[in-house]
Write a protein that binds this DNA or RNA. Structure first.
Length: 614
RNA sequence: UGCCCGAUGGUGUAACGGUAGCACAAGUGACUCUGAAUCACUUUGUCAUGGUUCAAAUCCAUGUCGGGCAGCCA
């Protein structure tokens, strides 16, 4: 098929209702350039659901020649921590690197708010810089935006709202506020004078009142059918130090007040969030419009967050897994966190491809993990170096191969990529093969090794199993085979067809490696279905640690490389590796049609030779 | 309960009043020195009922089902 024919099936960029909207705005010339933002709260690690949002927001910037700011939405010091701001930065940079890195909008080193005058009014803004604005060297020092950078102007906007008679200080307790709001009842403090409100708000800021004593509320419509318009809170008192601003503030703006204004200050054009904020949109617009701001206003759009089968997406519950030591940490390779998947060996390209395939809609569906697994396999199939490794060894002696002799065989590094080249692997009289590649009583259609049967050793000879050696307890401990010594590549009988080909390592040359076989964390696609406790459906076999025999070249395995242990799975070197002590993480198994054939198919995993071996 | 949003094969999505398509999954076969990859083929769908129209997945109405919100969380 020529390139012309293959064109229409592969769109360069995804299409969805948000991109359509942005494209229409661009076509209408609404903005000088489009500006999005990714605004996580630093109260946990980023997960694959965030990856969807990152790919959307940075994708928009990338595709429309815009910028996407990274912003910490840090308006609640009681839940946040710098640990998270560090991890969030690292994960975002990793995910967009090599793709939308040039669209990452940051705060220039030392950059302060600037005052712009527009329309006869002056107000604060904070322009973003990208790598091309600053140059690589200074850009290294650039930092993410923080909502807390805007505490002062946000405070001033609140004062402005009070002056306009659109906000008031309310002395109702939290419980009373709830009660009043539920019953569409006006606060008794709603009609305080502007002067009194100004005074009270200043005293809130000065720390004269304890937490919860009073709050600043918008004056909108206590009877609105939309709860968020029933005089929502704008500011609450929290005598808590903030990880960025220290003890400078004891009042903190609520999400609704801070977010729209942060968007405005940064010059965001399209503020994209998840569906649960849809009912907040009227408030988002109300705040910005009530202030009669001089510059163009941002607009909020919502899409459905990701739900993925066999995984949990709530930061709170992921933290529970970490705190209760159900996993080893946020970066445990079983976690759906970005750092967990990175450690597992998943590449940013695979994650982006996944995001591309799932699309963006307003429908709350459950995405099949198979879509993620497919994206990972497709990516790894192209990049992984093939190696031979035996996870559960059984010894094979080639009785007609001379003792003490070592042969060298040529092996292909990656059949998908000729430029990956070839390598040599040692062969000798004593080998290890996979225990499950031999069956004393073979099931139907089993075409690996069996008594009296033949199989090809990949890149080497066709062997025939002559004899089984068992220990006194009757356990199989060794297979004695003869090789067709003319059957290796290039040999006289190299073309002989045998149905099965198996992997192997030379016993004397093999290197030990710890392999960590990861599987799904849960046994159910919906861990919390019908209100059940997710801990009741944890997969007891989500991690299995083995010592494998691997081909000697793997002693030089690289952390940034990806490997396919042939016929088994993809693996990546773990950070726990030390010189002389290899540790590999199984990223994902190969698809395994044979596993589907066999009745004893894996209980949990959707396939993979390794799971059949368990 | 009130308000908001949604509904297209098993799953996720496209079609923007004019041929229901794609991906994953599943199945069959080909190929195979990876039971992988690749290739070919196949199965399965517009929530319901009315209406508008030459023509409806698409527009309107009603209903059903699902989700969200009702924190001084985000």
């Amino acid at each position: 098929m020529g390139p012309a024919e293959s064109q229409p099936t592969a769109p360069a960029a995804p299409s969805d209702f948000i991109r359509d909207l942005v494209a229409a705005d661009v076509a209408a010339g609404k903005h000088q350039r489009i500006h999005t933002r990714f605004p996580p709260e630093p109260n946990g690690y980023l997960h694959i659901g965030h990856a969807k949002s990152i790919c959307l927001n940075f994708g928009l910037a990338h595709e429309f020649g815009g910028v996407c700011n990274l912003r910490m939405d840090d308006t609640n010091p009681t839940k946040e921590d710098v640990e998270y701001v560090e991890s969030i930065q690292a994960d975002v940079r990793w995910l967009i690197s090599g793709w939308a890195g040039d669209e990452l909008g940051l705060k220039a080193p030392g950059q302060q708010l600037v005052t712009r005058t527009a329309d006869g009014k002056s107000d604060a803004c904070l322009p973003a810089v990208t790598r091309s604005d600053l140059g690589a060297e200074r850009y290294e020092q650039a930092t993410p935006f923080h909502a807390s950078d805007y505490f002062e102007p946000i405070y001033q906007y609140a004062v402005d709202l009070i002056r306009r008679g659109r906000a008031f200080v309310c002395d109702l307790s939290p419980d009373e506020t709830d009660e009043y709001r539920r019953h569409a009842k006006e606060s008794p403090f709603r009609h305080r004078s502007v002067g009194e409100n100004l005074d009270l708000f200043a005293r809130m800021k000065a720390g004269e009142f304890p937490d919860g004593k009073c709050s600043l509320r918008a004056k909108i419509d206590v009877a609105s059918p939309n709860i968020w318009l029933r005089d929502p809170l704008l500011y609450r008192i929290r005598h808590t130090a903030h990880h960025q601003t220290g003890t400078q503030w004891c009042i903190y703006p609520m999400y609704d007040f801070a977010h729209c204004l942060s968007d405005y200050i940064e010059g965001i054009t399209h503020s994209i969030c998840t569906l649960e904020f849809e009912v907040h949109r009227p408030l988002y617009d109300w705040i910005l419009q009530s202030l009669e701001l001089p510059r163009p206003l941002p607009h909020q759009y919502e899409f459905a967050r990701l739900s993925l089968g066999y995984t949990l997406m709530s930061k709170r519950k992921l933290m529970q897994l970490v705190n209760e030591k159900l996993v080893t940490g946020w970066d445990d390779p079983r976690m759906p966190t970005i750092c967990g998947m990175r450690r597992r060996g998943v590449t940013p390209q695979a994650l982006r491809q996944f995001a591309y395939h799932i699309g963006i809609t307003k429908y709350n569906g459950l995405t099949d993990v198979a879509v993620l697994e497919h994206a990972i396999r497709e990516d790894l199939n192209r990049r992984a170096l093939r190696r031979m490794a035996v996870l559960r060894p059984i010894k094979v002696v080639i009785t007609n191969f001379p003792e003490g002799q070592t042969g060298e065989l040529e092996a292909v590094n990656n059949p998908e990529d000729e430029s990956a080249g070839k390598r040599r692997v040692p062969f000798s009289r004593e080998l290890f093969i996979e225990r499950d590649d031999f069956a004393e009583v073979p099931p139907p259609k089993f075409f690996r090794l069996k008594p009296g049967g033949e199989v090809r050793l990949k890149y080497a000879y066709i062997i025939k199993c002559d004899e089984l050696v068992k220990d006194p307890a009757g356990n199989l401990i060794e297979l004695r085979c003869t090789a067709d010594l003319d059957s290796k590549s290039g040999g006289a009988t190299a073309g002989r067809k045998v149905k099965g080909t198996i992997h192997w390592v030379s016993a004397a040359h093999a290197v030990d490696a710890e392999v960590r076989l990861y599987d799904r964390l849960f046994t159910e696609a919906e861990p919390e279905k019908d209100g059940r406790d997710f801990k009741s459906v944890l997969n007891p076999h989500s991690l299995e640690v083995l010592t494998a025999k691997v081909e000697p070249g793997l002693a030089q395995a690289q952390a940034d490389a990806r490997y396919q242990f042939e016929r088994l799975a993809y693996f990546a070197l773990d950070g726990d590796s030390r010189p002389g002590r290899l540790v590999f993480n199984r990223t994902i198994t190969l698809k395994d049609a044979w596993a589907r054939e066999t009745p004893k198919g894996p209980p949990v995993a959707a396939g993979g030779l390794a799971s059949v071996l368990s």
